[in-house]
Design a protein around this nucleic acid. Structure first.
Lengths: 213, 213
DNA sequence: GCGCGTCTGGTCCCCGGGTCCTAGGCCCAC
DNA sequence: GTGGGCCTAGGACCCGGGGACCAGACGCGC
């Protein structure tokens, strides 16, 4: 095929590389152009082969996936990187995406879905699987009693948003044209309503619940 | 086609609905089964037609997209919702995804990419466009000097991770089996190294940079 | 050996954060 | 009119957070 999507496989297990290769060989618009067994040689092969898409494991001996992603970014390599991981390691999702990953898929993905993912990524999308997106957004989720954001008044939400930007009471007072004492009152009420101990917990609560604007 | 993907369009501008419809009519595996002009009637039509995928605008008069998403979730409607937005409104991304959106695409997407997005979403993926994913991750990004997380020592990262969980110095001391004073020293060093004013800012910095575990 | 960085801890001190109590003005619902 | 929220704000009070300064123990590299 003339304009097949050129794919590079980077994974430390050749079993996995072989599996991916056989998955993709039946797709007539996807061509596996190379393989690498660790991050560093993955970067080298990417520079050499200039693939459209790189399928890469996160956990690899030596230079790992995130490190390789950063290198590719520094080199200006235009390849789109799709992270293929053995299980949902939520700790690694954010760093990987931040380092420039174009997507994150689970290793037990079925062949057609994987092909679809490669096409999506090649088309310029960023792609996550549900569990991964869930992990990214849930973080800790609501510990028990669910979101009581509704119980906050408008003014309290304003104050909370500023707390979530790291502002002090004095700064909040200036920003909202209030006395510092009034801000303290609002903060106290927020902490009471949300059952939190201090402004740091309030700030974290806010970012998790999207009050941070 | 026997198992075409059944799509419902929800947007307050019929021009947009018409555009999407013509985009999708040339795809032989996608069938537009209905339209709605606002969130509430979108939910009603979704219940009635049971589409596989719903293309929905976020900003609509009356019941908006996020509200509609929530309703669908409550009703247990299995439709996958792809948010189609006129521009990258980063404020709305997180709430929409949290409310159960399966994806977020830009209105100037080209027909084939839109079809691809629908197929991805229908296949169970969560899909974002680059700018959207960028907005989600960047948030405020590094104000200037880039991530100096590397300058933190291992111990400092441990302490920072606990700060990012809303723990007090005393709790951190107990958790790490240290004196409260030592924790304070670490906190001071963290604030100095990252050029932050207090633990609240440190907690926010940590979650943005993935130190929060 | 010596220097350097890290981890540990101490003392002194100040201030910002947070609580408790109180209270006036405002608007809305009954 | 009366009660009940919300926003505003004051005073008194306590304490945890953070800075300044100092220092010993340990490990690593020159």
């Amino acid at each position: 095929m003339a304009d097949a999507i050129r794919v590079l496989l980077v994974d430390d297990h050749q079993v996995v590389r072989r599996g991916l290769r056989t998955f993709l060989e039946v797709q007539d618009d996807i061509e596996v152009v190379g393989e690498a067994g660790d991050g560093a040689s993955g970067v080298a092969r990417a520079e050499e082969l200039r693939p459209d898409v790189i399928l890469m494991d996160v956990k690899m001996p030596g230079s790992d996936g995130v490190e390789a992603l950063r290198r590719l970014g520094e080199l200006g390599n235009p390849a789109r990187v799709l992270i293929v991981t053995s299980f949902t390691e939520q700790r690694t999702v954010v760093p990987a995406l931040r380092a420039g990953a174009a997507g994150y898929v689970h290793k037990d993905i079925d062949p057609d879905a994987l092909a679809g993912a490669i096409r999506s990524v090649h088309a310029g999308h960023v792609l996550l699987q549900p569990e991964v997106a869930g992990a990214l957004l849930a973080q800790e989720a609501a510990p028990a009693q669910g979101s009581r954001a509704g119980s906050l008044t408008e003014r309290e939400r304003e104050v909370l948003a500023l707390i979530a930007r790291g502002r002090s009471n004095r700064e909040i007072a200036r920003a909202l044209v209030l006395s510092e004492k009034t801000v303290k009152t609002h903060v106290s009420n927020i902490l009471m309503k949300l059952d939190l101990a201090d402004r740091t917990q309030a700030a974290l609560w806010a970012v998790r619940h999207g009050i941070s604007d």
